[in-house]
Design a protein around this nucleic acid. Structure first.
Length: 478
DNA sequence: CTAGGGTTAG
């Protein structure tokens, strides 16, 4: 008979009877299945290939299974829950499969799961390799566990991977994110095979920890050592210039970009707008902003917040109205800018209206920063009782920043009654924060309540008094 | 056998 009937790979009864694994199909029988998984563009296709692999027993081959896992876990059209299920039914997954899932979890909305998976992997006695740590560190950095980077570092040493460029880069970033800048710098300095990425990581670390000068000094050294910055490096340095008020250096970098023809996309455009606006070069920022062909919400926020920090409240509100007509959705950062502008200009009613619209119109739950703006706004307007009420209504415990804003307002208004309550709350959070005693003491002194001033002095231990900066400023200390 | 890092707004 021609063409010959294709032989079945194994008897049909194996397929559905749930009996022990069927005889393994010869690998050559279906050589393209795992390659097909690489070309997959949807979960529907992937499930078909998965089914074929089960039917043909190919799934027990770790290489084939890992092609499926890669797509589910990493592709934009993948499905991480499917990846987890696939992983869970795999017998003795190999290190590649563990790594893929750790990576996927690190990029997921709940990145601490990457750390938990690593712990599970170690419990099963599987050894990590050079690919494991960059993914794991990413998970640590973007979860609420940045401190765990230090523990990861001990594992890196244990497995002898401290000379891998990607691993070191991940560790440097981890230490930067958890604000251990000196540890990050030590690793950076001790590692001799540096490339542009690790320089960028260290510079970004400084910039994001508000150590702009260090960032700029390091950038300078990078240039001296002959590295050519790329878009990522430039964006970071511009951010440092914006935060530290280095307008001149920012301008020089802008000139450098134009000279070298550095591709100016939305990220670099935003970084430039931010740098100019934050440094008060509003007309330059506006000119750039208007000329950008593509703007995202970060671009608008850079412009709004830059204007707000220089007190241009009218312009902020005008720009915000313009934003409402665009196809972009404002986010929480947008409202920090707009509300702080209202605060500077003392626009209580407008601010209140916008604050309420956050949730009602835009569905954005106000964060503690937004409450902070409102407390500041109400406090400046003399509405201390309302400000205190607002703090009580918050879903979270008030932090020192927000209580400090209220205390400052109390001081300006001379409201000792509320100030005493606020000081008590701050001391509950930070028992050694003697500055609040100083503020309160000053308020008592202004009101001529000398007995209270002396009572406060007794509350504070004399030994701590000497260490408290600002004590000598107390008016009543005569 | 397969894979990896750094970038914008607060």
């Amino acid at each position: 008979m021609f063409p010959p009937k294709r032989p079945t790979l194994f008897p049909k009864r194996y397929l559905y009877s749930g009996c022990a694994s069927p005889p393994r199909a010869p690998k050559s029988a279906l050589p393209h299945l795992s390659l097909l998984a690489d070309k997959c563009i949807s979960m529907t296709q992937l499930k078909q290939i998965h089914a074929q692999m089960i039917v043909t027993s190919r799934i027990s081959d770790h290489f084939a299974a890992s092609r499926l896992l890669s797509f589910c876990a990493l592709s934009d059209s993948g499905d991480i829950n499917y990846a987890i299920k696939l992983f869970n039914i795999t017998q003795d997954p190999n290190i590649f499969m563990w790594n893929i899932l750790i990576r996927a979890l690190a990029n997921s909305p709940n990145p601490s799961r990457a750390v938990f998976l690593y712990i599970q992997m170690r419990r099963q006695g599987v050894c990590p390799n050079n690919h494991t740590f960059p993914f794991l560190l990413k998970g640590c950095c973007s979860s609420c566990l940045p401190e765990s980077c230090m523990q990861v570092h001990t594992h890196v040493l244990k497995f002898g991977l401290e000379l891998d460029l990607h691993v070191v880069n991940g560790l440097v970033r981890g230490y930067c994110v958890s604000s251990h800048l000196s540890s990050a710098r030590r690793l950076f300095d001790e590692f001799s095979e540096r490339d542009l990425s690790i320089w960028t990581t260290m510079i970004t670390g400084y910039a994001q920890n508000f150590c702009a000068i260090e960032a700029l000094v390091l950038f300078d050294r990078m240039l001296v050592e002959g590295f050519e910055p790329n878009g990522s490096t430039v964006a970071s340095v511009l951010s440092a210039c914006a935060r530290s008020g280095c307008l001149e250096l920012g301008e020089r970098i802008h000139a450098f970009m134009l000279e070298r023809g550095v591709q100016m996309g939305v990220i670099l455009g935003t970084a430039l707008v931010h740098m100019y606006a934050k440094n008060g070069a509003i007309s330059m920022a506006t000119k750039l902003f208007d000329s950008m062909p593509e703007r995202n919400i970060a671009t608008w926020n850079a412009m709004l917040c830059g204007l707000a920090s220089h007190g241009h409240a009218e312009e902020v509100l005008a720009l915000f109205r313009k934003l409402e007509k665009e196809d972009l959705v404002p986010n929480d950062v947008t409202f920090v800018g707009v509300l702080s502008a209202c605060c500077h200009a003392g626009l209580i009613d407008v601010g209140y209206k916008i604050f309420n619209s956050m949730k009602e119109v835009y569905g954005i739950e106000p964060k503690i920063e937004h409450y902070g703006c409102m407390v500041d706004l109400l406090g400046r307007g003399g509405k201390l009782v309302e400000a205190e009420e607002l703090i009580k209504r918050m879903a979270w415990k008030a932090d020192v920043v927000i209580l400090g804003a209220l205390l400052a307002a109390c001081k300006n208004q001379g409201n000792i009654e509320i100030a005493e309550r606020v000081v008590k709350d701050i001391l509950a959070l930070e028992p050694h924060n003697h500055m609040v005693h100083v503020v309160l003491s000053n308020m008592f002194a202004e009101a001529g309540r000398w007995q209270d001033v002396w009572r406060l002095r007794k509350v504070m231990k004399v030994g701590n008094l000497k260490k408290t900066p600002g004590w000598s400023l107390v008016d009543g200390d005569k």
